[in-house]
Write a protein that binds this DNA or RNA. Structure first.
Lengths: 101, 101
DNA sequence: GTCGAAGTTTGATGATTTTCGTAGTACGGT
DNA sequence: ACCGTACTACGAAAATCATCAAACTTCGAC
């Protein structure tokens, strides 16, 4: 089971996306992913939470369609689904990222 | 108490805005307000909730800085704070409203 | 094959949130 | 002054959510 389930673009729902973005920890993750132009290993991010909590947050983001996660060895590389989000909700991501830190 | 407390533009925080938008009922309210180019009386909106629940949601939106509420007789007229939101998070509102129902 | 590193699963807990009913306030009209 | 309308306040119940610890899985390296 090397592939994790992701919603297709047309399965992404705005309610879930907003709910995923509405948590401070997840918003930080999204900001870090947006700042990098490559995928990142969330486990290396030094948020102040335990591993199991991180798992929960990354899954929430993945199931909402905000990030794509693919395994790489024992690690998980997460990337922002910029193109999908921009296609569905043009400007949303930019607006959020424009917010002062 | 004819004036209700609203956050100034520089007091609006993205976490609260996203949290306010992350509820289905509140998102419907925002969509209805956005569809009208005038302020609306939320109490006339026929969402499937009681009055006290509506009060709670409108207050959540107001305290987050999403809507401005001003009394008009016994009614309350709510308007989207388009300009403030656009200034703080350009594109966010447009992206959300672009989502298919 | 064993070990450690990275992540997941499960179950529990505490906090937050959504919701409602009831009672109360504020306003405008008669 | 009274009445009805629109809304608010106050609890309280139910649901959801974030968090953690402990046990388990998976993978790569030695």
């Amino acid at each position: 089971m090397t592939t994790l389930p992701h919603p297709e673009r047309d399965e992404i729902r705005i309610e879930l996306v907003l709910q995923a973005l509405a948590d401070p920890v997840r918003l930080r993750i999204v900001r870090e992913l947006a700042a990098a132009d490559t995928g990142l290993q969330c486990g290396a991010m030094d948020l102040g939470i335990t591993k199991s909590t991180l798992t929960h947050h990354v899954r929430t983001l993945r199931e909402a369609g905000v990030v794509r996660v693919h395994p790489q060895g024992t690690a998980r590389i997460s990337t922002l689904r910029r193109d999908d989000l921009e296609a569905l909700y043009p400007g949303l991501l930019g607006g959020i990222l424009a917010a002062p830190r």
